[in-house]
Design a protein around this nucleic acid. Structure first.
Lengths: 171, 171
DNA sequence: TATCTTAATGATAATGATTATCAATATCAA
DNA sequence: TTGATATTGATAATCATTATCATTAAGATA
């Protein structure tokens, strides 16, 4: 009966923990003359609190636990919106479906990835070695100059086999 | 009537130009106890001669011009095989479908990419700046040591807007 | 606070890429 | 040349994602 209110409470009511995302979300939404809705807060909130990459279906399942009325289409629509707004980042690891994570910004550090091409386990890392960040900055400026691109972000993935899949391979 | 023979001729008959890929293909196929077939030569040949990234559908269309009997499913199956064999590389640029290119090896230089997130134009570049290659080598060794991964390749993409799409954006 | 406009939603049909199935065909060892 | 069987082509099935559309709800206004 009161599910919508519950959903709202869960992600908006607690002070501090979920505020940052919702503030940024709220600003972006309002800027575009759009409406702030519970599904939008829920999707943003789930990704804000997730500790890895989630697929649309996974986000949908998580939200349904507290807000069973949500529709899968809304989750997809919202993810497109949040991606465009720069609040989440979409990745593709070769599985045949997209995965999402809270965008790199003040709170979530920029990261690169180690992807297992067999089980699709993904390891994020942010402990770049010396000169690594500096190099990307330099490459970006050279490339945008040379090709006239406006570069917004970069994706760096190392593909191979994770420890578990290496073992399986040997057997 | 003689289409199969024609197909074979087109990609196998000319000396030199198509040999390298077919040799590598032949070796890999035989190694695995598999059979060398015309469709496999055709798919490998098309990618060997392509100058950009092709989707499965595009490869299928190109082959059909000379070999109308080919099936789309065979193209897909063959691409999986060639990818596993390391003869081609699969990429995903966010379009919702995979694209393929002849693998980086002696002939095709290793490259990174500049991807337009609006029209999906992709620019390959191989003119890395100083220390760039060296850095990736170092990062790979650090990562594989630290996480126990067997790293096979890496993907580096800079996403943004190409010159054309930047103009459209402003209007 | 009640009302109204219309953006957003949820259910579901449609689409598009890729994979599975299976009878017919082609490879290649003998 | 023949026979075992890997591979193919046609097509059905699947899976992720998008489009459609009647219903609902956000939020400006009275």
């Amino acid at each position: 009966m009161n599910r919508p209110a519950e959903g709202r409470d869960q992600f908006q009511g607690r002070p501090g923990r979920h505020k940052p995302c919702c503030m940024e979300l709220e600003g972006g939404i309002r800027n575009r003359g759009m409406r702030m809705t519970i599904p939008r807060q829920l999707v943003a909130g789930v990704l804000e609190n997730a500790d890895g990459y989630l697929s649309a279906e996974e986000i949908y399942s998580i939200i349904r636990e507290d807000y069973p009325a949500i529709g899968l289409a809304t989750v997809y629509r919202t993810l497109v919106l949040l991606d465009e707004m720069g609040i989440v980042n979409r990745y593709n690891f070769g599985e045949g479906k997209a995965r999402y994570i809270a965008a790199e910004d003040q709170r979530a550090e920029h990261h690169h990835q180690l992807v297992c091409e067999r089980c699709y386990k993904v390891i994020r890392y942010t402990d770049f070695i010396e000169d690594e960040r500096e190099l990307y900055r330099k490459v970006e400026s050279v490339l945008s100059e040379k090709h006239g691109f406006e570069i917004k972000r970069h994706i760096v993935q190392f593909h191979g086999l994770c420890p578990d899949c290496r073992k399986l391979q040997k057997e």
